[in-house]
Design a protein around this nucleic acid. Structure first.
Length: 736
DNA sequence: TTACTATGGATTTTT
DNA sequence: TCCATAGTAA
């Protein structure tokens, strides 16, 4: 019939052609599900469905972007298909109709940092001890409740006489009250409020039901109850709902994802068809069999098993290093070897359970001059300086946003301290007005007589800037804000390397804004704020640069690499300490799924590494190898390569966890790290070059002389004069 | 009000 | 180790 199904396997074909009624597509890792989804959309259009009536929902912007591009490539009119994330879909819907819930369409979006500030504020006003009730804990609790579609009122009933819950309930209620006063929504609210909007306004729901005749949801295993409800509301009339997911890749349970959504799909949607995509096109047989062997140890899962026609491939290389330093050295040297054999740097990914593990590896890569990119860490838009400037924009857009206003009222320092802010804030509270509005009336607050000049100066600054909003584009507005507030000037005065880094970031923000204005059809302040609020770091990852990539196992989902290293394969790290302590096995099962995700990222070669001792929080600890290594059949593993010692895959039985290691008991520990230090330090600069040094900033190299395995480098700094360094210990970066 | 020092706590984080 | 926060001095 059409060429939309050529080249697809029978199951993929079936999935493309089955357009009517509920469909559960169980798509294993690397089974070509994006291909199926895009072809399915194209097929629908070919069948005469208007693109406008098709909705595809993803979790990440990256996935949405990719799907959009692929749909547009294979079908004309692909542009009109509604492809977007849960969150941006909801923003679009809410911007239209949120007035029905008593907000205005100018609402701003809070990230978790903003939410935490607000909760801290509330704890202060309620005099709640933040030792017993840390803001983060409460935030997670509230988020969890929203994900379960439990409102503040419902939670209050649930709490009953329970002291802990009652306290949290008070905060939750106040939090929602203030969010509304601030005309702002957090990430969870975006979905929650949309569900609420639909249930309270059948006319609006009806409108969207008749618009989205065909709905597709990607990564369905990651949906929480709230998202499930949204989907259910939208699809219940026509029932043309296709969900795609893999229960074995559900790794966001701790964020509220409800694995039952996918496990119970057939119960929830009568007449649901189920199609399994079990052929993997990504990995070698060895890698896939290993992944299957591991995931088999989980109990609650849909029955399926991935297979592949790909070659057998090399064995999994398992390295049991003596220390984290040796582990890092091993990884770096394997990358160098691979590079010599013709691989590119971008073929390699290093995955780990938590961000702290990246440090040692990074240090090693720097020393070995291996270019790398770190994903995760502090995301660009969460950096202090970026958030500060963005909060100015937020205030300009939505002056009732008290959280944003309080953040910047004394940034840069302008003599408005905590005590003053408290007074204004209290005045605002008692008059039920926003802090910004309170600033109009500072003269009426008797306690503030002395400070009122500073406050009205600040208010004047903001109202000046709001005039600039009308006349300037985003890029110029950003520059004006940085200038008129004196923010940039203050950083320049500091003159440290850190301050320079911040200035660099601000400049990058300006160019991001310029780029945004060039590429988006809508480029007003509102659109820019939304972009910034909803775009994650991983979305900006592209394969263009030839660099090794480092990231957590979580962020690696959906990506693939020829060679994958999984580092820190140890009890207490992976599976994490906390998951081991959980009485129920579900936590470790989720870790196992994470392991499955990690293994299936590899196309050609998988490395697994662990270290007998590792520096953690400043102490040496020793961990047993991960229980997951025992679950990998021996026949797939090339054991402890390049180790002279035997080291069969003997694993200390049942997982002794992180026994504290006292450095004093092992006097060798300092010489031991020396022993592991590089035999040959590689430096990529010469006399006369400009280099950047961590403490003193940029200077010129005046001499280099060999000193044992290392070099002594003399550098002349404009600010600090001449300094001498050992190359291995000082982190130099060459400046071109 | 701010700038310094002591202390304690420390997964994962699509939006 | 690194970070945020609390407490204190100027």
């Amino acid at each position: 019939m059409s060429d939309l199904t050529t080249g697809l396997n029978p199951m993929q074909k079936k999935a493309v052609l089955k357009t009517e009624g509920p469909l559960l597509l169980l798509a294993g890792a690397g089974s070509g599900k994006t291909r199926v989804l895009t072809h399915r959309i194209a097929y629908l259009i070919e069948q005469g469905i208007r693109p406008y009536n098709i909705m595809a929902i993803t979790f990440t912007n990256k996935a949405a972007k990719e799907m959009k591009e692929r749909v547009e490539k294979i079908t004309p009119f692909g542009k009109d298909v509604w492809v977007s994330t849960f969150h941006s879909s909801c923003v679009r819907i809410l911007r239209r109709d949120i007035d029905r819930l008593g907000y205005t369409s100018q609402f701003t979006i809070y990230d978790s940092d903003d939410s935490e500030r607000l909760i801290k504020d509330i704890l202060k006003t309620f005099n709640i001890n933040d030792k017993n009730f840390p803001a983060k804990m409460i935030m997670n609790e509230i988020s969890g409740q929203k994900n379960e579609l439990i409102s503040a009122a419902a939670y209050s009933e649930l709490a009953g006489d329970d002291f802990r819950m009652k306290t949290i309930s008070r905060v939750y209620t106040e939090y929602q009250k203030r969010m509304k006063q601030n005309n702002s929504l957090d990430f969870d609210d975006l979905i929650f409020k949309t569900v609420q909007l639909f249930s309270q306004n059948p006319d609006i729901l009806e409108k969207y039901r008749d618009r989205f005749l065909y709905i597709m949801v990607d990564e369905y295993q990651d949906t929480n109850s709230c998202q499930y409800n949204l989907i259910r509301q939208l699809s219940s009339k026509y029932q043309n709902l296709c969900v795609v997911g893999d229960d074995d890749q559900s790794i966001y349970g701790w964020r509220g994802a409800n694995i039952r959504n996918i496990l119970d799909f057939e119960k929830d949607f009568k007449n649901a068809s189920v199609i399994k995509l079990e052929q993997n096109y990504r990995s070698t047989k060895t890698i896939l069999d290993a992944a299957n062997a591991v995931i088999k140890n989980n109990f609650s899962r849909k029955d399926k098993e991935l297979w592949t026609d790909n070659e057998k491939g090399g064995l999994i290389k398992y390295k049991k290093a003596e220390s984290d330093l040796e582990e890092a050295m091993f990884i770096a040297s394997e990358i160098k070897k691979g590079k010599e054999k013709g691989r590119e740097y971008k073929d390699f990914a290093i995955l780990y359970r938590n961000n702290a593990l990246s440090r040692t590896i990074e240090d090693r890569l720097v020393k070995d001059s291996i270019p790398y990119r770190l994903l995760g860490g502090v995301p660009f838009y969460s950096r202090k300086e970026i958030k500060d400037i963005m909060c100015y924009l937020k205030v300009l857009y939505n002056p009732s946003d008290d959280v944003a206003l309080k953040r910047i009222i004394n940034v840069p320092k302008r003599g408005i301290g905590d005590a003053t802010v408290e007074k204004v804030s209290a005045f605002a509270d008692s008059n039920e007005i926003s802090v910004y509005d309170a600033l109009r009336n500072v003269e009426e607050i008797p306690e503030l007589k002395i400070r009122s000049k500073k406050l009205s100066d600040f208010r004047k600054l903001i109202s000046d800037l709001s005039e600039d909003v009308l006349s300037l584009n985003i890029k110029d507005l950003l520059e004006t804000v940085m200038l008129k507030t004196g923010y940039k000037e203050e950083l320049e005065k500091e003159g440290t390397e850190e301050a320079q880094g911040r200035i660099d970031n601000l400049n990058e923000l300006i160019s991001k804004a310029a780029e945004f204005e060039e590429h988006s059809e809508k480029s007003d302040l509102s659109a820019f704020l939304e972009e910034v609020a909803l775009v994650a770091d991983i979305d900006n990852y592209s394969e263009e640069d030839d660099t090794v990539v480092l990231m957590t196992l979580h962020s690696s989902k959906g990506l693939e690499f020829p060679v994958v290293f999984i580092a820190g394969f140890e009890e207490g790290i992976f599976p994490s300490y906390r998951s081991i302590l959980e009485p129920s096995p579900t936590a470790v099962e989720e870790e196992r799924r994470l392991c499955y995700v990690g293994i299936t990222r590899a196309k050609k070669q998988l490395y697994i590494t662990c270290a007998k001792t590792r520096l953690q929080h400043g102490n040496y600890i020793s961990n047993a190898p991960s229980r997951f290594i025992k679950e990998l059949p021996d026949e797939f593993i090339e054991n402890d390569i390049f180790s002279s010692k035997n080291s069969n895959k003997t694993v200390k039985s049942p997982a002794t966890v992180s026994s504290k290691y006292n450095p004093r008991e092992n006097k060798n520990y300092s010489s031991y790290s020396k022993m592991l230090s590089p035999k040959n330090v590689i430096i990529d600069f010469k006399v006369g070059d400009k280099v950047k040094q961590a403490k003193y900033g940029i200077g010129t190299v005046t001499s280099i002389s060999p000193a044992g395995a290392d070099y002594e480098v003399t550098v002349e700094f404009p600010s600090a004069g001449t300094k001498k360094f050992m190359a291995a210990l000082s982190k130099f970066k060459k400046i071109d």
